[in-house]
């Protein structure tokens, strides 16, 4: 059982999210905006923060910044469609994930579960098997359906990086910084080309990737489920 701080100014949405998380067996503390959420946060003892983006007084972005200054607690943000710049800013400011409204409750619960699991096993062993793909990070070998697959060094770096956080979304900049060590001189399109190579070698249908998914205009998500 985990303790979750929920901030949303819409009572109806708060009730729906609260019911869903409580059914999962979590304890939910509600706040009606970012300011109240910060007050509750200071009481301590939380494992996850779920917050709306648009709220009066302290909004979701401010809340993310404030919480990030104080703690590495996982943060999940409820956003809306077509606000990609906002999503990128949120993630770059330290939010861990977002769901886009209108979201299904099942999706929200799954994201929260993934974040809580990552929090439990922080710095734990990276995932090395998903679907019919096996990865040995030490020897830098990859097999799909038992057959060895040759990846370029950059493709392997992208794979190894994304394996460290199953289910997590990476902004273009975050992924570039992790793989190239810099964002200078690397374009989103360069990243897209290498991601395309990785998908062609590992995905069953590279046009409709199930593991290395595109988050439009935000980045990529590794979904091993």
């Amino acid at each position: 059982m985990s303790r979750i701080l929920l901030a949303d100014d819409e009572p109806a949405i708060r009730k729906v999210v609260r019911d869903a998380l409580e059914r999962e067996g979590h304890e939910v503390v509600s706040a009606i905006d970012g300011r109240e959420a910060l007050d509750r946060f200071d009481d301590g003892g939380f494992d996850l923060v779920v917050t709306d983006l648009a709220m009066p007084r302290v909004d979701g972005l401010e809340l993310v910044k404030e919480i990030r200054r104080r703690s590495p607690l996982p943060i999940l943000v409820l956003t809306v469609r077509n606000e990609e710049r906002e999503k990128v800013r949120l993630l770059d400011e330290g939010a861990d994930d977002y769901v886009t409204k209108p979201f299904g409750v099942a999706e929200l619960v799954a994201r929260a579960r993934a974040l809580l699991r990552r929090g439990d096993s922080a710095r734990g062993p990276a995932l090395s098997r998903f679907g019919d793909v096996e990865v040995d990070v030490e020897s830098r070998t990859v097999r799909k359906a038992g057959r060895p697959v040759h990846l370029t060094p950059l493709e392997f770096e992208i794979l190894a990086t994304m394996l460290t956080k199953p289910g997590a979304v990476w902004t273009h900049r975050q992924l570039m910084a992790a793989v190239w060590g810099t964002t200078a001189g690397v374009t989103n399109d360069t990243l897209r080309v290498h991601m395309g190579g990785l998908r062609r070698k590992l995905e069953d249908d590279p046009n409709r990737p199930s593991w290395f998914r595109t988050e439009p205009w935000v980045g990529y998500r590794f979904s091993p489920d």
Binding site: A12, I13, K15, V16, A20, A54, K101, P102
Partner: peptide, 22 residues
Amino acid sequence: LAHDLKTPVAAARGAIENWEAD
């Protein structure tokens, strides 16, 4: 306005999902 129109729909949709789960 978009927020005000979409929120009740989203809340109703979520409530049904919760109800189905229960």
